[in-house]
Each structure stands twice: as C-alpha cells, then as structure tokens.
Design a protein around this nucleic acid. Structure first.
Length: 495
RNA sequence: GCCCCCGUCGUCCAGCGGCCCAGGACGCCGCCCUUUCAAGGCGGUAACGGGGAUUCGAAUUCCCCCGGGGGCACCA
C-alpha cells in the first residue's frame, strides 16, 4: 500500500525549526517510499490563523526545497486541503458521531468548567467529569452547547509508534474531550482525526508533544469507521541550550530568521536531519538525495535534541564553500544590497568586483551575512578599525615598510596578484621582517581591518590607483597620529 | 495531583549480552601548513544518572530511585 504522510501546520505564525524538521522527516519518508506528502493547513482556529502566516509557511517550505504532492496550490484528489474550507465535512462527521452515540451535547459554560477545574490544582480532580453525558434534554435556559466525545469508561488504547514502540493509555485517564465548539466549528481533535482518515493518511509523523493526545485521535478515527489505525511516529522535541523546548525565548526559532541571517537551505536541511537522526556512515554532510537514500524512520532517536548553532555554522560554511561561484554571487547579492554597498541595479564594475572577490571569501565565512564586512572595502571606502590599526602600526618598522611597499607597487607594470605578491615579499625580505607581520600595515591601509581576503588578490581587484591612494592616506595618518588613532571615524578616502 | 515519554563525551548521533578500559561528527586544546582570517592535515581532551537483580559476562535485559520533558483548553 502506498504510504501517505502529511505535514499539517497551523498558520498562526512563522514556520519554526521544529516544524521544519517535522516537514523534512515527513518529506523524507514520502520520498523514500515512493509515497505522497500531503500539505494540510490546520486552520480550524479562525481567530489565530492568518493569511500572511499561510503564505509565509508555503514560501519557507519551498525555500527549504521541501515540496508537497498534494495540498494548497498543487491540488489533489482529497481536497480541499485547508481545514477552514472543510467545515461542512466536520459538521457532518460530528453529527454522525452524535447520532451514533459516540458524542453528546454538553451545556456547561466555560466559566463553570474553569471553576470546577480549580480543585485540580491541588490534585483532587482531573478534567471534565462527564456530567452532561446522560442529559435527556437541554437544561432550562440553556441553548449553547459543545459536542463532547464519549470516551469508553473502561479499557485501554495502544498507540503503535515506530519510534517508541507500543504506548498504552488507560481510557479512565482520558476525559470526554470537546470535538465541536459552541459556534459549531470543529476542534483540532475532530478535524485532524477526520482528515487523517478521509485523506487516507497512513503515517502520522509529528512532534512528541502530540503523543499524549494520540489516544483521542485513535478513538475518533475508529468511531468514524476507520478499520486500521495509522502508523504513528513521534519525533523527539528540539530544545534550547537550557534544555527547555525551543521557543521564541531562545531568540531565533523562525526558519525565516536563518534565511535572513545568511544560512543556505542546504545546510539548514542537512543540520535539521541530524537532530534526532544520524546516518550510519561517518560523513554527516548529506544532500537531500543522500538523506532520502539513508533515512529510516525506525532509527530516529527518542531523546530530545539540543539545537547547536555552532554546528550549524560549521555546516553552513561547508555548503557556502562548495557553492559554484555564480551561485555564491547570486546568493550574496541581497546581503550586499542590504548594506547599501551596491547601486541599483549593481554596476558592471560592482558585479565584476564581486564575482572576483567572492571565491576568495567563500571559505572564510560561516554565513552569507558576513560577505559585506569581508569584501565591502572593494566596493567603497572603508573606515579604519582602530584595533587593527594599533596592532599593525605599533611596530617601529611599519612606516618604513609601508612606504617602500607603496613605492614598489607604483613601479609594477602588470597589476596582477602574482607580481604584486612577489614585489611585496621582496620588500619584506629586504627589511628582514617576517611575512606574517610584514603585510599587516598594508592590509589595514587598504582595507581598514586586519581580517579579510588574501592581500595580493585584494590589491589586484582594488586596482593600483585606489590601493596607492589609500596607502597614502594611511601613511599620513600614521605620521600625524602614530599607532593610536584619536576616537572618531577614519575613512580611507571617498570611493 | 493524574497520565505519558526520555536519561551514553559540553552538544548531536553510534552501540541492541562478549568485537566497548565505548565509536563518529561539531565544539574545545595542541601541532603542521600559512601574506591576515579562515579552510585543510595530524593528534588530544571528554560520557554509559544512582542502586539493586538476571547472567560466566551488562552501556545493552528487568525492578526501584533520582533527574529532565510533554500532556491534562470551546490552541494546535
């Protein structure tokens, strides 16, 4: 039988990393088995659901490279795929449950329920006590009611979970839960169970937080007449550094944040796959195709996984390194633009500089957002970083060396990195200064900082005129102030 | 309070009764390479929550304890 999985987000905010991982695992299971992934939008809560969130979630899934076989925008035989468009179906299902004796009307008000729940705080009572179960008619003066599922008083339900084995719940611990609100809208329990049945979902893969609620789904699903329970798989939670479930408290949980921070989707997907699962081989660098090949739902871990930004950075660096030059440029452009380093549209010179400089820094950055600080000095006049300045200019030979370097560069007849390097190395050797120290002053003089792409290549891209102009500015600053620049901004020229 | 899940290096993942004085990855430390910073190469640090039981033998099985987490809404 074909495997049908689903990812069913509630459009009440941004897609966050936990949701993205759930989507990924569902996607992997579908792809691996040759089955289908259904994207269903669980927007039964009309108050909290927004169109903006809906669109954002779709965009984010696409950015991650996780497409769906059935769902919004792609259609399918089991639609519609937004629960808000299926309310009539749920109402009919609820009606049948009621007439079949599986559900009953409860007239208790929210206030009454809250009042009765209070004692539960000190442990004396559980949830709803089922008092409306045997009601023959509506109590006087009451017309509003919710529909509750009549949970059998005795027996147990066993959830078969691929990851956790069989988990058994005693029915006496499950209260008669609400399946339809007073306004006749369905609750998550009803709509979810109904759709998983009606859409032919065979595998329900979701977060561990839904495990305690699974017996409800099974009960409902059987009441609908579904003969076989779906296969469940409850993924371990993703937690923050404090071991608490990842939430906005931990700062950056929205996938969109990672996109904006300069992470590439390949890296994020690869990293997410490693949260709760691991390959058998030793390499953890796995493209989607590799993941499809190696992934096994059965081998997903049961332990909560901590989100480790350091490892994500490492992985992102790896993927940025392996980006083809044109791809790297394409992806870096938005970050350069955001820093105001480019004309709109970028000039020919700018594009030339970027495409020459980017390959030099791909290996040196963890995130695309670092591109501007890395190559910005090639696009416009940088300001001197005083820390870098004092470090490299403190040597007594700094001034002399810088002077000779400028002189030598001016005599070059081919402005290419190799002759530039040879000439500069010659100057350093002559002065008897070790290479690792000798180029510091010139580097800061042309780029403003001691961190950046290789110097000789940088000089080539910068061009002779700009390089010597900046070096001259640096020289005069050195003469005027020495290695300690007064507080303030010290731009290296105006272009 | 009640129900449920979980517990191996700082972190993620291996380990399914002997191959484990526990393996890989990230991080960290050191060395090498080196025009900065990275990257890369090599090496190192570091863990089976505690107690019982079963067994010739337990990280691996069972029980108890401890610890962490989830759920108990007219949210999903």
């Amino acid at each position: 039988m074909e495997i049908r999985t689903r990812f069913a987000p509630a459009p009440t905010g941004h897609l966050h990393v936990g949701g993205a991982r759930t989507a990924l695992f569902n996607w992997l299971l579908a792809r691996k088995s040759g089955g289908s992934l259904i994207l269903r939008i669980d927007d039964t809560d009309r108050r909290r659901s927004t169109e903006e969130s809906f669109i954002g979630i779709l965009d984010t899934l696409r950015w991650l490279g996780l497409g769906w076989d059935e769902g919004p925008e792609s259609g399918g035989d089991f639609g519609p795929y937004r629960q808000s468009e299926r309310f009539d179906l749920y109402a009919a299902a609820a009606g049948e449950l009621e007439s079949g004796g599986h559900a009953y009307r409860c007239y208790c008000t929210a206030e009454e329920l809250a009042e009765r729940r209070k004692p539960a705080l000190d442990g004396s009572v559980g949830g709803y006590d089922g008092r409306c179960r045997e009601l023959a008619a509506a109590p006087a003066g009451r017309s509003d009611y919710v529909l509750r599922f009549a949970v059998p008083l005795e027996g147990e339900v066993t959830v078969t979970d691929v990851i956790r084995g069989e988990v058994t719940f005693d029915l006496s611990t499950i209260e008669d839960f609400v399946i339809q609100r007073a306004d006749k809208t369905p609750t998550f329990s009803l709509a979810g169970a109904y759709d998983d049945w009606a859409m032919g979902i065979t595998h329900v893969v979701r977060g561990e937080d839904l495990l305690p609620v699974t017996p409800r789904q099974i009960l409902l699903s059987r009441a609908f007449g579904r003969s076989d329970d779906p296969v469940f798989a409850h993924l371990p939670l993703i937690v923050g550094a404090d071991r608490a479930p990842l939430s906005k408290r931990h700062g950056d949980v929205a996938v969109g944040w990672y996109r904006d921070a300069g992470f590439v989707p390949e890296a994020l997907v690869n990293y997410l796959a490693l949260l709760g699962w691991g390959p058998e081989g030793e390499s953890e660098i796995l493209a989607l195709a590799d993941l499809v090949e190696q992934f096994r739902l059965e081998s997903v871990s049961r332990t909560p996984a901590m989100f480790d930004l350091k490892k994500l950075d490492w992985m992102n660096n790896h993927y940025i390194q392996s980006l083809a030059p044109e791809r790297a440029v394409e992806r870096a452009l938005p970050f350069l633009r955001a820093e105001g380093l480019l004309d709109d549209p970028p000039s020919e010179r700018e594009m030339d500089v970027i495409s020459r400089a980017l390959p030099l820094v791909q290996v040196r950055i963890d995130r695309l957002s670092e591109v501007p600080q890395m190559i910005g000095f090639l696009l416009g006049a940088p300001e001197i970083d005083s820390g870098s300045w004092s470090k490299v200019m403190a040597h007594e030979w700094a001034h002399g060396l810088l002077t000779s370097m400028v002189e030598v560069l001016g005599k070059l007849d081919t402005w290419e990195s190799e002759p530039i390097g040879d000439a500069l190395k010659g100057v350093a050797a002559e002065a008897g200064v070790k290479a690792r120290l000798a180029f510091g002053p010139l580097r800061v003089a042309v780029s403003g900082t001691s961190i950046g792409p290789p110097l000789f290549e940088s000089l080539e891209i910068l061009g002779c005129d700009l390089a010597t102009e900046r070096a001259a500015i640096a020289l005069s600053l050195l003469e005027a102030h020495g290695p300690e620049l007064p507080d303030g901004r010290w731009p290296l020229g105006s272009r």
